[in-house]
């Protein structure tokens, strides 16, 4: 397969240690565009596969501020501007009483912001993806540890990769079409 036709080269192992060894070897050989698919999060991958900021916290903050301040603004508008009623001499803008709903909406919108940031950042939902074409990939959500060197990597060469990873005895190895 030509480089521009290939999504990447997939190799899979049955244990996390082998995947980490292979990843270190690939990085030493100069490969940078590598994805790792694991059945559970591995702490070591945070170091070995650096990523840009994930924005989840930021969107939680933005959502929280929008929800909380937006609710306060709505309460102020409705109780002090749009429909003011004098009840027992209480001020129209009774801000201590306005806090509980604002607090709840802050939590709700912060959570919403964070969830959306995760989904958008991970490009989900995406029901089809080239890695699903690999027959072994179904086990990546169970007990298989999968590496994919992307075709976009400047050093990409399937034959060279196969030779490089062969000593580590991957359980599966194949090239993926785009």
């Amino acid at each position: 397969m030509k480089r521009r036709d290939a999504y990447g080269y997939l190799a899979a192992w049955c244990a996390p240690g082998a995947l980490l060894d292979a990843l270190r070897r690939l990085r030493t050989a100069g490969y940078r565009r590598i994805d790792a698919y694991t059945p559970y999060p591995l702490d070591e991958l945070d170091v070995l596969l650096p990523a840009r900021a994930d924005h989840v916290r930021g969107w939680a903050l933005i959502g929280g501020l929008l929800g909380g301040l937006g609710m306060l603004a709505l309460e102020y508008y409705s109780a002090a501007i749009d429909y003011p009623i004098r009840v027992g001499g209480r001020p129209y803008a009774s801000w201590p009483a306005f806090l509980p709903p604002a607090l709840e909406m802050m939590f709700l919108f912060a959570a919403l912001g964070a969830v959306l940031a995760m989904l958008v950042g991970n490009r989900l939902p995406r029901l089809h993806h080239p890695v699903f074409d690999a027959a072994c990939f179904g086990r990546a959500s169970q007990d298989l540890f999968v590496l994919v060197v992307r075709g976009r990597d400047p050093h990409y060469d399937a034959e060279r990769l196969a030779a490089l990873l062969a000593p580590l005895q991957p359980a599966h190895a194949q090239e993926l079409a785009r």
Binding site: P41, L45, L49, V56, A114, M118, L124, P125, H129, V131
Partner: peptide
């Protein structure tokens, strides 16, 4: 939703779990 368990996905996912847990308790 097409979850694949990619390492960077897991990282965002874990940050999200922390953020949601931190919001859920209060």
């Amino acid at each position: 939703l097409g979850w694949r368990g990619e390492a960077r996905h897991w990282r965002r996912y874990r940050t999200l779990s922390l953020v949601l847990a931190g919001l859920a308790v209060p």
